[in-house]
Write a protein that binds this DNA or RNA. Structure first.
Lengths: 206, 206
DNA sequence: CCGATTTTGTTCCCGCGTTCACAAGCTCTT
DNA sequence: AAGAGCTTGTGAACGCGGGAACAAAATCGG
């Protein structure tokens, strides 16, 4: 389920506040979802709650982390070290959740050799070598749209089977490879859409 | 509809290739969706296609842009100028779509006064003034999780009614205010989940 | 030890979104 | 001018996810 990471975060927040036990109602509120939905999601993993009491925060946290595969560490390569790629490379939220960025890659020769945090930027020609060497399983594409498909093809050929695509392009991959797409400008456009409808319905003529 | 921006991007790509007319099948493939779904989405806006011919790329592009409100320009303020905030401030995809970043704000005094691209970072105490002065309607939160709710409250109080939240926290706002949440690490966690299930189902015992 | 209370796990139902399939309509050829 | 060939727009069925409501189970008090 796509909501497990949200629950995990809510549980971590409760854990930080030294709360040992939590009801589905409380958890659901912290996660911003319906309590019945939360219970149903959790029951899908197994019966980790205690009726009349609630859920043990630490235990449930571990179970969700295990279900998500966060107890392993995942090797990640980032292709395209522009603004977004740098932001992701420095983002602390990854390393604390079992994701290890093992390489930064860029096609621009001027960037190759520069250091970003703990990493040196490699040339894109080393992509396959790096993937094989570090046993990378997840690729993050932060290149311009025009290069995204080409990079994706090379990642797949090199054996990467999960891709997170920030480039504003639809990329196609063979069966068995997962792609998730995040488009920052799309989110803003959706906001603008709602915003416009709000002002229109108020008869605002500006 | 949340898919309109995707169609818009596909149309722009076709337009760049000097294609004047496109069928729903072709468009759907470019957008990565089913053609019937695309036709239904578009028919919701009105009958902008011609049976037997297809859709006029430029005309449809304008109609979608208008529906989304991209023909106006939206004033945006970014709160929290860390890695992600900087990346967003420099992101070209915003300005080309009717979004104008009018101010960067940060709570860290060491950052105030620094320049990012065309903008100078302002202190967070100026938030309300900046919102009023530039008639800001969209706020982007890229602060740490702990500050997100406080910033959101101030944005709402200042009159902002659409918020894009990148902070890893659930924020609550009054009715009439839209919040969209983007969490970069959640996307990776979902990939890890699928990746783990793939390797498990292959009996890989590593 | 037994009943009251609380909270989980689950069932059932409703509504929405997706998809198939077809009718309506436009163009081009003959 | 009329029919053949496409392509859009939409009606209907299907499937899935969400939410309310209830039964099962565990704790607490008498």
């Amino acid at each position: 389920m796509a909501r497990l990471p949200i629950y995990l975060r809510a549980l971590s927040a409760l854990s930080d506040r030294d709360i040992a036990t939590s009801s589905s109602e409380e958890l659901a509120q912290a996660a911003g979802v319906n309590s019945a939905k939360l219970r149903k999601d959790l029951s899908y993993l197994g019966s980790y709650g205690t009726r009349g009491v609630g859920y043990d925060v630490e235990y449930l946290r571990y179970q969700i982390a295990r279900e998500l595969g966060l107890t392993q560490d995942w090797r990640v390569v980032i292709i395209g070290v522009g603004n977004l790629g740098q932001a992701l490379a420095n983002y602390a939220g990854f390393s604390t959740r079992g994701f290890r960025i093992v390489a930064l890659v860029d096609a621009d020769p001027a960037r190759v050799g520069q250091r970003i945090g703990d990493h040196t930027i490699h040339g894109v020609e080393k992509l396959e070598t790096l993937v094989a060497e570090h046993n990378v399983s997840i690729g993050v594409i932060t290149t311009p749209a025009g290069s995204a498909q080409r990079v994706a093809d090379r990642l797949v050929a090199a054996g990467v089977s999960s891709i997170l695509n920030f480039a504003p392009a639809v990329i196609s991959v063979p069966d068995g490879v997962d792609v998730r797409k995040v488009d920052l400008s799309i989110e803003l456009q959706i906001l603008a859409y709602h915003e416009q409808r709000k002002t229109l319905s108020c008869g605002d003529s500006t």
